[in-house]
């Protein structure tokens, strides 16, 4: 199999301070540069420089916000995960077809997988109908796509490390203790 072609992107060596800054903003990107500087015992200027470098290197890819749209009336989305089998193309493997699929705005994530199928796609739409249309008209008509299996998501319990239902975020401690 040609998996290695797709996996060969180089990882970059960072200093422990740079890694620490990444961990801090991964938790909360709204934190001020001033606070970050204090936390890593560095200067604001240095932190700004580091952030710029990490953005330029595309190690920091973007600063998204995790929103629970299901709580907003009229904004609830239908989400589906689709397993896709693909015939890889000579010379370019899975990359070409994956990149094509990824460009559709309905596609919110796309991964190359080991195992029974090749691509794992997450689609968001307004209705089941809209997603079904996308699968039948856009996805399965692509050359090299052999088959698709669509799973509709019923409920989110955890997303990107954030629990949607738990009491873990409550502070149950007494106000003062030894």
């Amino acid at each position: 199999m040609g998996y290695m072609n797709e996996l060969e992107e180089m990882a970059m060596k960072l200093s422990s301070e740079e890694i620490e800054i990444l961990r801090i903003i991964e938790e909360n990107h709204k934190i001020s540069v001033e606070s970050i500087a204090l936390m890593v015992e560095s200067s604001e200027e240095q932190v700004r420089k580091t952030l710029k470098k990490l953005e330029d290197e595309k190690i920091i890819m973007s600063y998204p916000t995790l929103i629970d749209w299901s709580k907003v009336e009229g904004q609830e989305n239908v989400i589906a995960m689709i397993d896709v089998k693909v015939t890889p193309k000579r010379g370019v493997g899975f990359d070409e077809v994956a990149k094509r699929i990824a460009r559709f705005p309905e596609v919110s994530s796309l991964y190359l997988m080991s195992g029974a199928y090749d691509l794992s796609i997450t689609i968001e739409g307004k209705s089941m109908n809209q997603i079904a249309t996308f699968v039948s008209e856009k996805l399965s008509t692509i050359d090299n796509v052999i088959s698709t299996t669509t799973h509709f998501m019923l409920k989110k319990y955890k997303h990107d490390g954030v629990l949607f239902t738990s009491g873990d975020d409550q502070d149950r401690r007494m106000v003062v203790s030894p």
Binding site: D171, R173, M174, V175, V176, S177, P178
Partner: peptide, 24 residues
Amino acid sequence: GIRKFFDLAASMEGVISLGVGEPD
């Protein structure tokens, strides 16, 4: 001596506590 302080703090609302001797 902590007890006295606990009673006072516990009786108030909107307190941010830096008085807790355990992990968050």
